[in-house]
Structures are given as structure tokens and as C-alpha cells.
Design a binder for these strands. Structure first.
Length: 513
RNA sequence: GAGGCUGUAGCUCAGUCGGUAGAGCAACGGACUUUUAAUCCGUAGGUCUGGGGUUCGAGCCCCCACAGCCUCACCA
């Protein structure tokens, strides 16, 4: 170990303000160095997760109980343990110090007695602040009041914190600080770490389920010359050597379908897409999307897969199929409800979906602008305004008007209906799936028609000729599925906003100085 | 992009009618070998988000800017 005896910057101001809170910590850091100890720590092997240490409670042998009245300590012996963690609470009582340390598996109390640890360790313990990382060797036992405690025999200093942690019980409350300083939020806010670990379990479960179904994960390009596969504004960037403008991808679809043509019969990508749109409790400009394609399947195949993916993900988080959502409860027992678009339209508006004058009148009464719009577009605006919010689900909405689905195969015998479903839960679109369109001539025609309508508004949209060329080589009939992972995680972790399930959501940069 | 709400000590929050800026936690000094939101005694800590205005006087009223949250729009 190297002894470092450099002078820390100090301030002459009296104690209390933010600079002097730091100065007090730097003074302790200096004292730690004076003791010949590196305040930034060293490798620390063979410590057990605190959760595992707590699980060894049963190994404690009680020889005689303590007595609060006489102050006689209990005679109990437990296993020798080694732990590492962050100091989150500290109570000093004369020549005893009670500390609570926390790691990512749990929290446990430490008892440091002056006599028990010796002069050097005691001097080191005088330099502890809330937020410091320490290691401890000691005996796992219980205090007189029965609290599971590591009775310290030896202390190790692992890292100094020179910043003051937030209020010890309330933690960080300001939503802006919680997002900007997610590291503090993870340490000090109830349930935050667990929620993000659940997110990881959900994503792992999805990969496991797909692997068990023999799907192959691939990595498509995120830089696209043409941003296709969805109707959204892309972010633009530039490649210097080629001197071309590029777009960050807005969807995974068109490259995965090329791979379907290439013979990768069951293929998926789980990755980030970017849309240059507004921010809301349900939208972040970058979000995680799963897209799955299965040759020789259709949207019915994808419906079964969707149920399997979600049910397995719920199991992976250790929850039952009845999940809390705020004050209410959701039931993910399979099969999920299946209702057609037209059924739901009638149910929620009282107007039959094929009643053209009726739908138009209803839209007008809702204050929607109907002038010059295709009836299916009007119908869908009504559906989005009046039906979607009320779908608490989970419910599969089946069979959409074909004219609003440019990438979807039409129903055999009814070209006005597209074989598409969307899964709605709590008014949110969580999944979207098609029987994929594989007719290159029809695909080209639908793209052209779509581009006409968008020309002025969305000059980014361009015909992807290479995608059409790929289809011309023969794409198998297939089912395709997209799932918004962030929204699924919201639902499975009872999180009302997307920012609670994205570690670092987009924020405006902090002002300088 | 539009509207509403919010911004006070490191953190969490009070601040009355416009009249000298408050508390708890954290910090500093002291007491305490079984505490657990430890307790007790004492000390210190403020560009009231920033800028301008009204006023004898502004944390408070008005205007502008910045940031966050909510609703809407775009979108999944």
C-alpha cells in the first residue's frame, strides 16, 4: 500500500455550507491518508453479498439470552463473515458506533466497538462519513435488541465520498435530480434499484423465450441511408468520409425482413430506435424495441408468441399473473382477450365501423377535422381518440382497416382488412404485429401512395428501392411482431412514467456554472 | 410547439397581509459500550433559479429568460 501524504485543498470558511461540508470530508480523507490507508481503496476479495450474509442468520447459536435490565450482553456465536457496502446510517454512542451498510442485495447493521477493533481501526472509524464505501470482517450475531449485526473485528476502507448524500430517509424527491443523478436515486430511493434489476430480468427472459423457440438474434445497422419501417421523424447525422447524410433508425423492420429473404427463418433484434418526436410520460426520443419475424407464420402465430413472451417475463420477475397498476389490478392470465377493431369501434362509439356517413358525423361531432381525409383515416382518428384510452386490457385488437397499414398483408377474400393486431394494456399500445406483406408490386404501390400523402410534411420519407428489390427475390409468408420494451417494463413494474424505467432519459443539458 | 403548475441551506420542506430568512436531516465541538429516524448540550450554514421592473421596502406583486413536472400536439 502506498502512503500518500498530499495536502488537500482546504477552505477557511466556517462549517455548514456546501463547500464546508466537502471540506469536512476532505479533512477526514487527509486523516485516512495520515493513517497510512489509501482513501480510494484496493481490490477486496471474498466478501459475501449482504443478502447471503443475512440468509445465514440460522447459523447463530444462542447460548444465553441478553438482559436489557441488567445490561448483560447475550451470549451468542455466529459465523465469521466479510462484507462490503456503502454507509447509509451511522449512530455513534460513545466508544461504540452502529453503522448500516448497504450493497445491491441488502442492508445490514455493523457494530464497531473501540475495544473490540483496536486503536487503529477505531481511528479509521472516526473518519467515516455517510456515503463512504467500507469493508468489514466480523462475526454475524445479534445485538441485545435482536438486530442482526456484524460485530466488527477488522475494518477496510474502500472509497471516500466527498459529497453529502441526500436526506437519509426521504432520499431524493426532486424528479429532475432523480434523473440527472440516477446514481444517487439508485442508492437512496426506495425500489429504484429493484425496478431496474427487474428490467434486466424481463429483457433476459425475452431472449431466453425466443431462444427456446429457435429464434436467432441479429444486429442490424443503426445508421440508415433511408429511415423506414415506421411513420416517424428521424434524427439526422453525417458521415464525413463518405460525405453523406444518414438517419438514426426509427424501426428495425426493413432489415430484418431482408434477412427473412436471406433465409434466417426465425430472426429478431432487441435494440434501441430513435425518433425525433416529443417527450411525454410514455415517450422518450430513444427507446428499446423488440421486432421478431417468423417465416411461414402469420399474425396468429405472433399472438401466441406475444402471450408467451409476456407471461414468461412476469414469471422472471417472480410475480403472479395478477399485477398491480396503481390502485387497480391487471390480469395476465392467458389467453388475453381478442376483439376486432370494428367490434370495439361499435362498442365504444355506438356507430358501426362500416357506416360511412355515421362515422364521419361522429368524427365531426368529436371536433375532428374530417375535410379531404380517407374514411379509414377518419375512422382511425376516432378510434385513437375514443377507444384506445379505454382499453385497460390486456386485449388484442384485430383486423385493422387496410389503408392505414402499408406493410401488412390483406385478409384473404377481404382486401379492405389488414391482418394486423395491436396489444393494448392500460390504454398503451404495447405490441403491434402483422401478417407481413411479401408481394413486391403491392408493397411498392403502397409505399408510393404513402409518400404522396406525406410529401410536404415529411421530406425525410423516401422509397426504399433496395427493400423492394429484396422482396422481388421472394420473401416467405411470415408473421412479424414489435414490442415496446420500455412500456412493457412500465406495466410489469407498476411504473406510471417511462422515465422510471429508463436509467438516463433525455433531459436538457444543465446550465453551465 | 401551446397552456398550466413548480423552483427557498448539501437533502426534505415551512415562510401569514409586501416589513431583518425558518425547521428537520446532514455538518462541526462536547457527553455516552447495545443503538436502530439513537438521545442530550452547544456551534455554524442562504446569489430565496437568473435578469429586469413596481415600491420607502420584494422570497412574496409584474415582465423576460432557464430548468423540471402535468395536459395537449407529434409519436410507440
Amino acid at each position: 500500500m502506498t502512503l500518500i501524504a498530499m495536502t488537500e485543498p482546504s477552505t477557511d470558511k466556517p462549517s455548514g455550507g456546501s463547500e464546508t461540508l466537502e471540506a469536512a470530508r476532505r479533512e477526514k480523507l487527509r486523516k485516512i491518508r495520515q493513517l497510512g490507508i489509501d482513501p480510494w481503496g484496493q481490490r477486496f476479495d471474498n466478501h459475501a453479498p449482504i443478502g447471503e450474509i443475512r440468509a445465514r442468520e440460522g447459523e447463530i447459536v444462542v447460548e444465553s439470552a441478553g438482559d436489557c435490565a441488567t445490561g448483560r450482553p447475550p451470549q451468542a456465536h455466529g459465523p465469521e463473515v466479510r462484507a462490503a457496502g456503502r454507509i447509509v446510517l451511522q449512530r455513534k454512542a460513545g466508544k461504540l458506533i452502529f453503522l448500516d451498510i448497504r450493497d445491491w442485495t441488502g442492508q445490514i447493521q455493523l457494530l464497531i466497538g473501540k475495544k473490540q477493533v483496536g486503536e487503529e481501526n477505531w481511528a479509521l472509524a472516526q473518519c467515516f462519513d455517510l456515503g463512504d464505501l467500507i469493508g468489514v470482517d466480523g462475526e454475524l450475531s445479534r445485538t441485545r435488541t435482536g438486530e442482526l449485526t456484524i460485530f466488527a473485528r477488522d475494518l477496510h476502507f474502500l472509497s471516500k465520498s466527498i459529497e453529502t448524500p441526500p436526506a437519509k430517509h426521504k432520499g431524493l424527491q426532486d424528479p429532475e435530480l432523480r434523473q440527472r443523478m440516477r446514481y444517487l436515486d439508485l442508492i437512496h430511493s426506495e425500489g429504484v434499484l429493484g425496478r431496474f434489476l427487474h428490467r434486466t430480468k424481463i429483457v433476459q427472459s425475452i431472449r431466453n423465450t425466443l431462444a427456446a423457440e429457435r429464434f436467432v438474434e441479429v444486429e442490424g445497422p443503426t445508421l440508415h441511408a433511408i429511415a423506414g419501417g415506421a411513420a416517424a421523424r428521424p434524427f439526422t447525422t453525417h458521415h464525413n468520409a463518405l460525405d453523406i447524410d444518414l438517419f438514426l433508425r426509427i424501426a428495425l423492420e426493413l432489415h430484418l425482413k431482408r434477412l427473412l429473404v436471406g433465409g434466417i427463418e426465425r430472426v429478431y433484434e432487441l435494440g434501441r430506435v430513435y425518433r425525433n418526436e416529443g417527450i411525454s410520460p410514455r415517450h422518450n426520443p430513444e427507446f428499446t424495441m423488440l421486432e421478431v419475424y417468423q417465416a411461414y407464420g402469420d399474425y396468429g402465430t405472433m399472438m401466441e408468441l406475444t402471450e408467451k413472451l409476456i407471461v414468461e417475463a412476469i414469471r422472471a420477475t417472480g410475480q403472479s399473473l395478477k399485477l398491480p397498476w396503481g390502485e387497480s389490478e391487471m390480469d395476465f392470465s392467458t389467453p388475453f382477450a381478442r376483439k376486432t377493431y370494428d367490434e370495439l369501434f361499435l362498442e365504444h362509439t355506438g356507430v358501426a365501423a362500416d357506416d360511412v356517413p355515421g362515422v364521419t358525423q361522429y368524427a365531426y361531432d368529436c371536433g375532428l377535422d374530417t375535410a379531404g381525409k380517407h374514411i379509414d383515416v377518419i375512422k382511425n382518428e376516432v378510434f385513437e381518440a375514443k377507444v384506445e384510452d379505454r382499453l385497460t386490457g390486456p386485449v388484442f385488437v384485430l383486423d385493422y382497416p387496410a389503408s392505414i397499414c402499408p406493410l401488412t398483408k390483406r385478409k384473404a377474400g377481404n382486401p379492405a382488412i389488414a391482418e394486423r393486431f395491436e396489444l393494448f394494456i392500460q390504454g398503451m399500445e404495447v405490441a403491434n404485429a402483422y401478417t407481413e406483406l411479401n408481394d413486391p408490386d403491392l408493397q411498392e404501390e403502397l409505399f408510393s401512395r404513402q409518400l404522396e400523402g406525406l410529401a410536404a410534411e415529411d421530406s425525410m420519407a423516401r422509397m426504399d428501392h433496395d427493400f423492394i428489390r429484396a422482396l422481388r427475390h421472394g420473401m416467405p409468408p411470415a408473421g412479424g411482431l414489435g414490442i415496446g420494451i420500455d412500456r412493457l417494463v412500465m406495466l410489469l413494474t407498476d411504473s406510471p412514467t417511462i422515465r422510471e424505467v429508463i436509467l438516463f432519459p433525455l433531459l436538457r443539458p444543465e446550465a453551465e456554472g
